[in-house]
Design a protein around this nucleic acid. Sequence first.
DNA 1: AAAAATCCCATGTTATACCATAAGAGTAAG
DNA 2: CTTACTCTTATGGTATAACATGGGATTTTT
Lengths: 156, 156
Amino acid sequence: MRKTFLFMDTIVNKVDAKGRVSLPSDYRAIVKELSTEIVCYRSLTSPCIEGCAEELLEKIAADMETSLDFFSQTQDDLTNLIFGDARRFSFDSTGRILLSEKLLKHAQITDTAVFVGKGRKFQIWNPENWAKEEKRIRQEIMKNRPSLSMKGGTNR
Amino acid sequence: MRKTFLFMDTIVNKVDAKGRVSLPSDYRAIVKELSTEIVCYRSLTSPCIEGCAEELLEKIAADMETSLDFFSQTQDDLTNLIFGDARRFSFDSTGRILLSEKLLKHAQITDTAVFVGKGRKFQIWNPENWAKEEKRIRQEIMKNRPSLSMKGGTNR
DNA sequence: AAAAATCCCATGTTATACCATAAGAGTAAG
DNA sequence: CTTACTCTTATGGTATAACATGGGATTTTT
């Protein structure tokens, strides 16, 4: 029935002493709908955790297979890094995943996690870091607004 | 059968204490017709809520996926901004959606909401703000088309 | 055996589905 | 042209289901 699967919204959830966090229910719905799994890895560019449906990584792998020439060496390396770091995180009957020490440390998350939707992907941030990052992005986007409105042209 | 999907007209509805508003029936018809969902987010440029069919965001996500710019910084920022703020708002059997505190605050809406159609998108305004905005827009148009205003003025 | 991971139950909170009434818009009959 | 009726829509209130989260029990790993 649902044809779309977009990770959206910004949701704040508690992380308990064991490292458990509720995956936002919308995200869980996507996983169920696609009968896939959530995959997480350390972001290559930011102090946050990045996640997506396992499906997406398969798509990327397939793309690399068929169009190696179009990927630069750098992108190839980056992709390797992600695959090397990524792991499945399945949620229990109450909808929680258990984040690993490695990921929590990289994102500096202790007791609160902020889930930020990115369409096909999502990110998990420490609240303070996300507040700063959001501010930075808004300033950055406003600076480059002309090009943004150009991109809005895809709306038609 | 022709599938039209243009958000039009200006409709004023009450917002109750819980933040519930009736989605204009025309809008609901569009959602049903396209079997999609309504997605809302804070306008980047105005103190109002902006909404569209989820389909539209899906298109944007698809564009980004195929752009090969999987690791571009700008794209990263954009997806955070768009999808991080957007959320699905499905309506109940009586046609109401529950607007979030974040959105209501951004648009300064308390007890009344004005829905303004914009084609593929629509906006939700606080009544006073919308009155000002509409006035501003009309003045702007008259400024840029003096000949039009002369014609209308003398003849009627 | 100790530690870690997974599962299961309990609770407060919140969102959503449902019911009921009121208000209009439109239609048909008088 | 007016009145009565029907149907859709808007809105208030309430009940129910879903969710996040704490705590503990059970299983698996090492």
